[in-house]
Amino acid sequence: MNGEPALADRVLRAAAAAAREVAGVAYLRPGLAEVLRGAGGRVARRPAGVRVRPGRSAGSWEVHIELAAARGHRAVEVTRAVRAAVTGAVAEVLGSGGAVPEGAGAARVAVRVTVTDVS
């Protein structure tokens, strides 16, 4: 229990920050729940369009990114660039967090990317 929520939060934020930086990402899609929470203004806003959860094998993580691809970029290339960027960023968090052995980070991150809009 201790450490897990905090780590999940760090994984989430690292993934969101990395995905947003990728050329061809117009925005990460806010889900309804996040928009409502944001509108309420009480709960600190979780990064939109990103979900993380521990994977099936110990120490692994599954990340799901939902994004709008910018016009002029091939959607599948955007998803590949996002996967690469997110995998790297999350591996860095895991590697430096001491939760998994050094260098094992990349192998323990599975990134699903869904394009929800092309704008």
């Binding site: 959607a75 699903r112 990317v113």
Partner: peptide, 10 residues
């Protein structure tokens, strides 16, 4: 690949 697009966007 684990990459997807929703029908409305395509």
């Amino acid at each position: 690949e684990d990459a997807w697009i929703v029908e409305a966007a395509a």
